[in-house]
Design a protein around this nucleic acid. Sequence first.
DNA 1: GTGACGCTTCGGCGGCGGCCGAAGTGCCAC
DNA 2: GTGGCACTTCGGCCGCCGCCGAAGCGTCAC
Lengths: 237, 237
Amino acid sequence: MNTEDPQAAGLAALAGLIADRTRAACLLALLDGRAWTAGELARRAGVAASTLSEHLGKLVAGGLLTEERQGRHRYVRLADARVAQVVEDLAAQVPAAVVRRPPRSLREASAGAAMARGRTCYDHLAGRLGIVLTDALTRRGLLRQDTGFALTDAGVEWFGAAGVPLDLGGRRPLARACLDWTERRPHLAGAAGAALCRRALEAGWCVRVGSGRAVAVTPSGERVFSDLLGVSRDDLR
Amino acid sequence: MNTEDPQAAGLAALAGLIADRTRAACLLALLDGRAWTAGELARRAGVAASTLSEHLGKLVAGGLLTEERQGRHRYVRLADARVAQVVEDLAAQVPAAVVRRPPRSLREASAGAAMARGRTCYDHLAGRLGIVLTDALTRRGLLRQDTGFALTDAGVEWFGAAGVPLDLGGRRPLARACLDWTERRPHLAGAAGAALCRRALEAGWCVRVGSGRAVAVTPSGERVFSDLLGVSRDDLR
DNA sequence: GTGACGCTTCGGCGGCGGCCGAAGTGCCAC
DNA sequence: GTGGCACTTCGGCCGCCGCCGAAGCGTCAC
């Protein structure tokens, strides 16, 4: 390369951090928005602890992850919402045919079904649950998807009325579309999506299922979503 | 890797296509939305024609590029707007400090200045020009950026009145934020951004400068943007 | 036809990077 | 202290991949 191009080099370096099967598996696992220990990730990815340690070093050095040492554990999480967005966006581009794979076992099948029903996607809700809520917001004129992706004034009010505080002054966009990779349609992300998810977990509208990203709606959540958004219970199961 | 994960493998493979300096340089060059020949890209990237041929093969096989053979030339372009978006988004994440580099020559400096003033970003307008237009749309209540990123009803009307036809039924979102890597702020992308750019070039409001992506506003364009959006001529120079 | 040109294929080279196991470091429990 | 555990560092192995030049193929100009 006679004429070195710093932008191309930077782009290649960034993509290179993701362009490894093991690191990609880590990033996807970390998309649940929580902190994992190095050991958990190593088991998940199926590589030796030493191998994973090196990968984490690269991801942290590259700014994709932040780490937090606690005793003999190294906790690691996605650095910020922008990193999560990049990983999501890229993951959403991989052809559906590649991702869809018949489950190997009953256990895997039911875990997959739970994820498809509802899960967190970094800091917001995804899966059928995410889509149902996003569609309900749209149907009620609270979110507009026809000319872009933004809350309406009524939508901002609705969040206030629902007891979901919105950070209006923040640098992060309030509403953003995130392509759902099970539903293949956009769901609500951004500050509003994060606030809704946080509130739903705090208030017990939803609970985490098992150890992973899967999320289920509680009876109280069904009532709330029905009252606030007219979502039928059948759509949430 | 004991438990193979098709999603991680797919993500890594996709990122791997971008994770090479030469291929990254090609993708960035192709972000101008036009078709390039293999030879042009080889010269641009500074590698042998044979090397570049192999890279193009991978990018085409991976679905990032489409090719069109004409005589002894192989024309290649980004496969679609989604690919452009992925490349843009990823490129926008590389730290500004890496990209900003003092120009080597007067020629390079003036080319850089022209690009910063105005350029195409795949199929829409970027650089100061893109930002000025996006801000003007926002100031006039035609585009809303405070609660997301979407055209208002008045905005949809404005496009009609300005003689810029919008495809309302299309699958592609009408308005989308694209992070400008010279201005570090979002400018208008999506179907509306593409329509505006197409109309501006057709109607002679803007013209391509030199051989590349740079775009300049013509006197007639200054008049139009002033009339339609209240943009001062000084902001366009 | 003849030569020039654009691109592709192939062989070979070199370097990078992912992987592991072994050894080492720090932390915790007992 | 003593052992166990989580993680890291190191050395070495292996395979992949980007690079080139040479040769080949099709197209275009004359």
